[in-house]
Simulated assay, not measured.
Amino acid sequence: MAAVQALKKFRLHQLKGLESHIARNGPLPAPEGPVSGVRLPNPFLPHRNPQTGRWAPPKYSLRRQAELIKNAKATNNLELLPPGPKLSAPAAAALSGRLDASVGASQKISVLDESLAFSVDWVGKFEPKTRVPSLYAGRKRMFKGHKWERVRDRKKSHRYMLLRDMDKRVAKYKKMHRKKRPDPLKTPKKWSTKLPF
């Protein structure tokens, strides 16, 4: 019963809001297609004030939209809600078709009053966001990146070269170190005290 009350409240609120909307912003824009019912601004979408040019946020937050959709699903009245970010028109049509099939078209009874079950043409077009391709799609080079990313390949090849020849380098160092080491049995070389000037 709470779901029905929520939908009734939503429809009444939209009818009352239509009068104040027309008084503030003037008549609604002309429809693109044939009009089949009452024309209301879509409360699930942001709208632009024609006088000031500023955008106003949607009347219903995403959380409240989700609650209304949940209530509409429970009462099998999804077609009463406007399309929005939480439920687009094609998805609503497909979902209501599935719900009708599960309930049975003959058993479906609108729980709303006849006065509230009027058809509505919602003003404002909802376009779902398309997925943005990868940031590097179609680029020849990557962005600047971090320094460690830019020098990583060069360091890796240098490290590989050093490790490949490590045995030779160790043997060479030990041999050279042995030659440079002073012999303890030899007498130390005397340094001349003669100054060069």
Rank of each mutant, 00 (worst) to 15 (best):
D100H: 12
F118C: 09
I109D: 05
A94E: 15
G124D: 01
A92W: 02
L116M: 06
S119M: 08
R98G: 07
V120M: 02
L116D: 12
A101T: 09
P128L: 02
S106D: 14
L116C: 03
V103N: 03
S96R: 14
V111W: 12
D100Q: 10
R98Y: 08
S96C: 07
Q107P: 02
A94C: 08
L112C: 06
T130M: 07
R131G: 03
S110I: 07
L112V: 04
S102K: 14
L116W: 06
A117V: 02
D121M: 01
G97F: 05
D100E: 09
R131W: 04
D113Y: 05
A117F: 10
S119N: 11
S115F: 06
E114F: 04
V123I: 15
L112W: 03
A117Q: 13
A94M: 12
S110Q: 01
V103S: 04
A105K: 15
G124E: 02
E127W: 06
K108W: 07
K125C: 06
A101C: 09
A101V: 07
R98A: 13
L116S: 04
V111Y: 09
A105F: 05
D113R: 12
S102W: 07
F118L: 14
E127M: 06
L112T: 01
K129T: 05
A93V: 09
L112R: 02
V120S: 00
D113L: 11
E127L: 08
F126A: 00
K129Y: 04
W122M: 01
V123F: 03
S106Y: 09
S106I: 09
F126M: 02
S119D: 12
V111R: 15
V123P: 00
I109G: 03
V103D: 05
S119K: 14
